[in-house]
Simulated scan of single mutants.
Amino acid sequence: MTGMEKSDKMPMYQYIMKDIKRRIEAGEFKAHDPLPTQIELARQYNTSEITSRRALSDLVQEGYVYRIRGKGSFVNEAGAPQRKPMRTVYLAYKNEAVAAFNHPFFTEMFQGIRDVCEENGIRFFLWGLNEEYKLPDDPDAGIILLTTNHVFDIQRLTGWKEEKRRMVTVHFFYPHLGIPYVIVDNLTGGYLATQHLISLGHRDIGLILPGESMVDVNQEFSLRLQGYRLALSQHQIPFNQERITVFPGEDFAETGYRGFKSLMSTEHPPTAVFASSDLKAIGAMNAAREMGIRIPEDVSLMGYDDLAMSAFANPALSTVNQNTRKLGERAAEILLFELRDEENGQIREEIVPTVIVRDSTAPLATDADAQR
């Protein structure tokens, strides 16, 4: 503990902030000097890392300190407040059916945001954008922007950037605007799903996608398609466009049902199918039962999303978990700690998914297996 007196009523994080400001003003810490880490501060002030992290966060928000990701916290050149500290974070969304927020992609992301906000004494709320795209009146609030379809007005993003809104986008991204973003790495996810099937000996792999056509697939599914193609390419497996089915509609289970029937009705059907989402995989399972096709004995089936119901499907569905809790955590951390990180250019991060292996995928059956 330093020599500065602490009143009984002063919260510890405020005491740490006040003491660091005093040390900056006294010249003990000079411009661009590194500050102790949150672990070191917790030890110095005999407190928790949550408390020391809150102190550093507020010093960043007040302009005394800037952070460089992977390097630490440093004394700002000005050494004086630039903006008010952030007290509230909103996840702003538009044209999103609220019922969709029960999907684990969103519930896990919300939990990740909330965990980081609570740890740092920040309030967290959802904010539905109206037709005028009105953001909260607080110009110092943090905005995590969720855009999930192509009708979002990009000009609004340009305006908010010019207003210097504290903002990060999740799920979709707009690299040309220079707005920080965190996304799930759908290309790697598509690659890992396909690679899992290839590792089991499958070389003839179908893919079911939602959309009007191959050129009208949205950003996340287009990236999963790229991952599928990359995995095939790395194993010298020719890409066959006839193995791709694309069906429109909001009902993903119906898309999977129709896609699976289309793939398996060909003269030489694939030995494995990547359904590109769990709901499409469930629809594919229903189609397989109608067609007398056994999963995984006759065809392996891969999903994507790791819905809770997927573990209880019959057979239990192999899938991809998108790790969206981490996505939420990183979005909140960027807002609270890293928006001043200009040395490394635009802040962008891609969360790597994880393959979950269950019973719906199996090694490719040999001719000997088929004769047993």
Rank of each mutant, 00 (worst) to 15 (best):
M1D: 08
M4A: 14
S7K: 11
K9G: 06
K9R: 12
K9Q: 15
P11S: 11
Q14D: 14
I16L: 03
A26W: 05
P34F: 06
L35F: 06
P36E: 02
P36L: 12
T37Y: 00
Y45H: 01
I50S: 04
R53D: 07
R54Y: 03
S57R: 02
Y64P: 01
V65Q: 00
Y66H: 01
I68H: 01
E77V: 00
A78Y: 11
A78W: 00
K94W: 08
A99L: 12
F101L: 10
F101A: 03
F101E: 09
N102Y: 08
F106P: 02
E108K: 09
E108Q: 09
M109F: 07
Q111D: 06
I113R: 04
V116Q: 04
E119Q: 04
G121I: 01
R123H: 11
F124R: 05
F125N: 15
F125A: 06
F125S: 15
L126P: 04
L126F: 07
W127V: 07
E131K: 12
Y133N: 15
Y133S: 07
D137C: 13
P139Y: 03
D140M: 01
F152K: 03
F152W: 01
T158H: 05
G159D: 09
V168E: 02
F173Y: 10
P175K: 12
P175W: 08
L177G: 07
P180M: 03
P180V: 03
V182D: 04
N186D: 05
Y191H: 12
H196F: 09
L197E: 07
L197W: 07
G201V: 06
G201N: 02
H202S: 11
D204L: 10
I205H: 03
M214C: 07
Q226R: 14
G227V: 02
R229W: 05
S233L: 08
Q236N: 13
F239Q: 15
Q241W: 05
R243M: 14
F247Y: 04
P248Y: 10
E250P: 03
D251A: 11
F252Q: 13
F252Y: 12
Y257A: 02
L263G: 15
T266N: 11
H268I: 13
P270D: 07
A272V: 05
S277Q: 13
L279Y: 12
K280H: 08
G283P: 04
A284M: 14
M285A: 08
M291V: 10
I293R: 09
P296F: 13
L301F: 11
M302P: 15
M302R: 08
A308F: 15
A313P: 04
S318W: 05
N321W: 10
N321C: 09
N323G: 01
G328C: 06
E329Y: 01
L335W: 00
L339E: 05
Q346S: 11
T354Y: 06
T354R: 13
V355K: 10
I356L: 13
V357Y: 03
S360R: 09
S360E: 02
S360A: 10
A362K: 13
A365N: 15
A365S: 13
T366N: 10
A370Y: 15
Q371R: 12
